[in-house]
Design a protein around this nucleic acid. Structure first.
Lengths: 226, 226
DNA sequence: CGCACCCTTCGGCCGCGGCCGAAACGTCGT
DNA sequence: ACGACGTTTCGGCCGCGGCCGAAGGGTGCG
């Protein structure tokens, strides 16, 4: 293979600010340019240019939502690459990872929060189940069907608030590469499930675990199994 | 962790010439600056500076031998890092690797030639066995003991040639991170073993396999098992 | 012992690229 | 519709770093 390709890829991470950005993104969240600028202590315009390069290089993708343009990893492989490099660059930070991060990573992949809603395999699985039952329409983004609106109201006591925030919205999942449910309905799932004791935050991070009661309830409610 | 460390590591590979060097070194051989300069099409002085950076960064180590100063990877982990990056930079080149390179890599780690002598676990194991039997002295580099000289002459029909090349020399092994036997005696082991049918070159590369007869003979000769 | 060769260090040139501020664009909220 | 805000593009500055050629060691060979 040509060295140019390798050098080009490495150059993406060979800048302090871009490295800082990728390290921040390693938490799996999607960050806005403004957040990243504050985090890396540079001007927003600078971050914008860096994001352009990282996207062009295939490491990141952008998702535009209102006046925000979130950035996140393009693939688990890209994130993995950054993690490998970071581990080699700072072996000390790897130590606590060896066992803990491995389980933490699988826990995050299993289920986690994404801002205020549920993501990971749990989030994607929920969305799949809702679609399969005809409660969620995924033909153009995500939208609750009439049956879905009724179901949310009856089963989960959900009534859309007056906010302009969309009721249902598709949110691309980093680990699963598929969409999970965000928006008011997505946020309601999280709070409602937590109130009913169906899910618990496991550990300090954003990982989420389904309780035995939750497993039974969800199985009953959606014919879904976790 | 700080982004600086990650950026610094990535910067090592973020240059076309350095990337070319590392890619060349991926074959496990130790290259001279001159060879690398010809390979990368730059002046020797340029390569020299690049090697300085790569060594300072911990990716490479140098081994000086006569008027040559060979460069090779500092550790299997460093080589792995470059391979990971290269695979991500050029996924097409990865395809033939998936199965073949995996087995090839283990084959190389098991036994291979290093210029004209034996390396890998095979080479390191041979050196260990010779030391254990008091035939090879490793207190200051490698040197044949009187018993070793007699043993090489009797068992392997080895007589040192008139060349100025040292009879025994330690050669740092890339995969094993320990020394194997080079020099006239090391080269003789290889040719003699091959003549007797104890080893065969497996495949097109530099991988070497011990034949069943070789296994028995070596076990008999050195109480060593491969 | 001296020549030839390999490699390194040094000095200088040049271009790439990161940084910022100003200005343009689009979205949200009133 | 208008102002506020988040983001991007553009222009310009500056410094880092890759490149080479020349000069200076160290090693091997005759």
């Amino acid at each position: 293979m040509r060295g140019d390709a390798l050098a080009e890829l490495a150059a993406l991470l060979a800048d302090r600010t871009r490295a800082e950005i990728c390290l921040a993104l390693l938490d799996g969240r999607a960050w806005t340019p403004g957040e990243l600028a504050a985090h890396a202590r540079v001007a927003p315009s600078t971050v914008s240019e860096h994001l352009n390069r990282l996207v062009a290089g295939g490491l990141l993708v952008r998702r535009t939502q209102g006046r925000h343009r979130y950035a996140q990893f393009a693939s688990p492989g890209a994130a993995q690459l950054v993690e490998d490099l970071a581990a080699h660059a700072d072996p000390a930070a790897e130590r606590p990872s060896t066992l803990r991060a491995a389980t933490a990573a699988t826990a995050l992949a299993r289920g986690r929060t994404c801002y205020d809603h549920l993501a990971g395999r749990l989030g994607v699985g929920l969305a799949d189940a809702l679609i399969a039952r005809g409660l969620l329409d995924d033909t153009a983004g995500f939208a609750l069907t009439p049956a879905g609106t009724a179901w949310f109201a009856q089963e989960l006591a959900f009534a859309p608030g007056p906010s302009r925030r969309p009721v249902a919205r598709a949110c691309l999942d980093w680990t699963e590469r598929r969409s999970h449910l965000a928006g008011q309905a997505g946020a309601h799932l999280r709070t409602c499930f937590a109130e009913r004791g169906w899910i618990t935050g496991s550990g300090t991070g954003r990982a989420v675990r389904v309780t035995p009661q939750g497993r039974a309830a969800l199985c009953d409610l959606l014919s879904a199994t976790w």
